[in-house]
Amino acid sequence: MLQVIKSVLAAFLGVQSEKNRQQDFQSRSPWPFIVTGVVMTLVFVLVVASVARWAAS
């Protein structure tokens, strides 16, 4: 799971090493990545939103 989160984070930055990538693509189903990606997008939005909220106050 940690690996999945790390990979999705890497995807957000757009940087991924070949080794980790190989590892990701060993896994048989893409679903963990897709679900984590969507969840992390939501988390990302919440984080930026709370930073904005904090900065505005």
Binding site: A10, A11, F12, L13, G14, V15, Q16, S17, G37
Partner: peptide, 9 residues
């Protein structure tokens, strides 16, 4: 790989 990931991002 980074290119693919950056596109998705």
């Amino acid at each position: 790989a980074s290119m693919v990931y950056a596109t998705a991002s």
